[in-house]
Write a protein that binds this DNA or RNA. Structure first.
Length: 552
DNA sequence: CACTGATGCGCG
DNA sequence: AAAGCGCGCATCAGTG
């Protein structure tokens, strides 16, 4: 059963129940209720509470961040939903929906960023009207899915994507437990005490004084790359840029303090006191997650840089008193995804334990470090350097795995699209680049573009399927947490952070060990959802800790 | 003054 | 200008 929620122009909400009159018949609206905004949470709660063992409704709405934050604030959790906006994007471009009305539809009002008016901006008493004709959109989506030869996979993909949207809002609602005191200590130790506004921290002034005197450039602005290159060249350090990688190759006495300065500047600017003031309130950091924010289906965030939290500040993620953090990350996720996608039995055998050690044991390469570099090179399309040299050695031992990424690369080079296991389809280069491509691009340029697009499609199948695995993992784990601990209410363990192949759970201490078991089981379940009984394993590294820096 | 693109670096 | 993918953010530098 589906319940479609649609916000009307006056702010009221229309709830339409859709059922199948009989199995195999098309969905039809069964009843309609209109509730005032103030009564919405209660109406949802009523329909979510149900006898043990019976399935609740699947809420259908235009855009999860427009609905769910206010429900959570009212204490109402939703088990399942269909996020029409996210599913629209998937189905419109999926090759598996060919022949449906949605397939290849021109960009329209559903092709918008999430939460266009902000999840809640407090300026309006009445939330904006729903995106146009959600019932029509819902039916077009159901038709696209149900007539697809890939129906089962599209059902799983759209469900996983929508559940991800719920989880993103729930994680923002709970927030990451954050100790401003510890964060300040980390900063003070790395940079010196917090300076007055507009001042450089003491340790950075020391670095800068050394750089200026050793380059004989007393007025140097170290934050201007152009100025820095000129000063370095004048001092005999011949660099074309100021990247860490290039600077490291010179042993001029200015280089060391300069690299120190740059490192500290980075910490100050990206995650310094200003960040703390802007992003941490009442002991919580609340990132704005953007599910499917990247083309491959990985999440992004907007504001706060949550997916780039430097290791140095992770000590500030501290569990509440009496609580623990359960940190779990999937080991060598992308190579294992490639194993499952390709059905490469030699690679599956190598992945019984540590995959990179398994590759060494297979005789393909000599060391774990080489195995890692070679594997990344294979998935990213490396052609040069150590990585490029090692890739052919992998190809000899694991021909099926290598053939899969090679095929994806060739398809992209020739202008075709590729898809993930569940059917997310890569953008077409024709649509993406046609208007930007200069009419008379030299042949060599076109070739370079094609190869670059081939590296994108090569990686798309792996990174995108890994993102699908992660969504299934999250969804299964969320369900397991709720089944086991849901009745504890605010005292239940909950997801608090997600980073592509890693999750952090904030858990009451007495639940932590059990949570650790559930997260491992969920990983195995995700593997089965994608690959059935194929011999590919998804081991996790799990740690129960007091702060995030203690994990691994 | 506002905007855009390039640079550099943090994360997976 | 780093080989080799995907992101976000701050800052600089150039343009309208």
């Amino acid at each position: 059963m589906f319940v479609l929620a649609r916000r009307l122009a006056d702010g009221d909400v229309e709830l339409t129940t859709w059922r199948r009159p009989a199995p195999d018949q098309v969905l039809a609206p069964a009843d309609v209720e209109v509730v005032g905004d103030a009564d919405l949470a209660e109406a949802v709660r009523r329909r979510e509470s149900r006898p043990e063992g019976t399935a609740g409704p699947r809420w259908v709405w235009d855009d999860t961040p427009r609905w769910y934050p206010r429900l959570l604030e009212a204490g109402v959790r939703v088990a399942r939903c269909v996020d029409l906006r996210l599913c629209h994007a998937l189905l419109r471009s999926a090759v598996a929906t060919a022949g449906s009305e949605l397939h290849g539809a021109p960009r329209g009002p559903w092709d918008v960023p999430q939460g266009v008016d902000g999840p809640r901006d407090g300026l309006f008493d009445v939330l904006p009207e729903s995106l146009p004709d959600p019932a029509g959109e819902f039916l077009r989506q159901r038709a696209a899915i149900e007539t697809s030869p890939e129906r089962a996979r599209l059902e799983l993909l759209t469900t996983a994507e929508s559940t991800g949207a719920l989880i993103a809002v729930e994680m923002r609602h709970h927030g990451v437990p954050w100790s401003a005191r510890v964060h300040d200590r980390v900063l003070s130790e790395a940079l010196g005490p917090r300076p007055a506004a507009g001042e450089r921290p003491a340790l950075m002034r020391t670095d800068l004084d050394e750089v200026r005197s050793r380059l004989d450039a007393p007025d140097l602005n170290p934050d201007s790359p152009a100025e820095l290159v000129r000063a370095l060249n004048s001092a005999g350090v011949h660099v074309a840029s100021t990247t860490k990688w290039e600077l490291e190759r010179h042993d001029h006495p200015a280089v060391e303090p300069l690299l120190r300065y740059k490192k500290r500047q980075r910490l100050l600017v990206a995650n310094g006191w200003a960040w703390l003031d802007a992003w941490v309130r009442d002991g919580r950091f609340r990132p704005d997650y953007v599910p499917a924010g990247s083309v491959t289906g990985r999440w992004a965030t907007s504001g706060g840089g949550a997916l780039q939290l430097p290791r140095a500040v992770r000590a500030a993620v501290v569990a509440d008193p009496g609580w623990k953090l359960v940190v779990a990350d999937a080991s060598q996720l992308e190579p294992r995804i490639l194993t499952g996608l390709s059905g490469d039995r030699a690679m599956a055998a190598a992945g019984q334990g540590d995959l990179y050690e398994g590759i060494v044991a297979s005789g393909a390469v000599a060391s774990r470090a080489e195995a890692k570099v070679a594997m990344l090179g294979a998935m990213y399309g490396a052609t040069q350097g150590e990585s490029g040299r090692l890739v052919p050695r992998l190809a000899r031992r694991f021909p099926q795995a290598m053939a899969l990424v090679e095929t994806a690369a060739r398809t992209g080079e020739q202008g075709g699209v590729v898809r993930t296991l569940l059917g997310r389809t890569s953008p077409s280069p024709a649509d993406t680049a046609a208007d930007e491509l200069p009419p008379e691009m030299p042949r060599a340029e076109v070739g370079r573009d094609a190869r670059s697009w081939g590296r994108f499609t090569r990686n798309f199948v792996v990174q995108g399927t890994a993102a699908e695995w992660a969504l299934c993992w999250l969804g299964a784990f969320r369900q397991a947490l709720h089944d086991r601990f849901g009745e504890r209410g605010d005292d239940a363990p909950h997801l608090t952070f997600f980073l592509h192949d890693e999750v952090v759970v904030h858990a009451p201490a007495d639940t932590a060990d059990e949570v650790a078991v559930l997260v491992v089981e969920a990983a195995a379940a995700a593997g089965r959802m994608l690959f059935g009984d194929a011999p590919v394993r998804f081991p996790l590294t799990v740690a129960v800790v007091d702060d995030y820096s203690q994990a691994k």
